[in-house]
Nucleic acid binder design. Structure first.
Lengths: 121, 121
DNA sequence: GGCATAATTAACCGATTAGTTAATTAACTA
DNA sequence: TAGTTAATTAACTAATCGGTTAATTATGCC
């Protein structure tokens, strides 16, 4: 699995990792904070591994502060997924209201000169 | 991997399967049509397996027509992913314009009485 | 019936994944 | 220095994944 997007989807294909991400969506947390809800079910090294998967997927960044490793959400990975999803919006966006609202933003963006131009493969 | 969302993410974590989905986003196709671009790289049974993964993930449906199996995109799986993504929109939506536009649709929806109320876990 | 086409199933294999326990690194604290 | 806390690394294992080849099913056509 060489490509980044596959790695990101793969990282999200696990309920433990998604729960860790949900935790981080509420703010920074150390490894042991993230681990706490799962220590009944799995060991700390398992958590370390999950975190590494999230890091490689571009979904989490980890820094150092004494013996702690504060982690936070990295929007890059999420952005990649969101960008990929766009090409399928017409399929999953069943509400006419919201699709219409979305199409307006597309028009608005075009008028402004395509700030976010980028190939999504 | 018991839960549906994990299965869906897992199905998307493969470039061959994403390419097949992209193909189907242009319209229905038989298994051999979907297979054609990949037959240099892998066998037909491999394609059958990939398709089965996409089906179980709720991303594709397959029907029967004589000896052919016309496949088409199933929006359910994509919808599940999109719904899950919503909780992270504030992270990946960096353009203020589009975030603002989105927030307007939220307000509009609230006024209408929350048509799309659903737990996404 | 006999053959070609479309697709699936079965059985197998090597690589990766998700977990384990035990040992180790690194920083603070008394 | 010795001990504690936070986290990682190493080595291993069972299960899953992505592919293979060979055989099988199912349909249409002469």
């Amino acid at each position: 699995m060489p490509d980044q997007l596959s790695q990101t989807f793969s990282a999200l294909a696990d309920p433990t990792r998604r729960a860790m991400l949900a935790h981080l969506s509420k703010g920074e947390a150390n490894v042991s904070d993230l681990a706490k809800p799962f220590l009944k079910d799995m060991s700390l090294p398992a958590i370390t591994k999950h975190l590494k998967v999230l890091e490689k997927a571009g979904l989490v960044t980890k820094s150092r502060e004494a013996q702690w490793r504060p982690c936070k959400i990295n929007s890059e990975g999420l952005k990649d997924v969101a960008d990929w999803m766009e090409q399928y919006r017409m399929f999953w966006e069943e509400s006419f209201d919201r699709l219409e609202a979305y199409l307006k933003t597309v028009v608005a963006k075009e008028k402004k000169g395509r700030k976010n131009a980028k190939k999504t493969k």
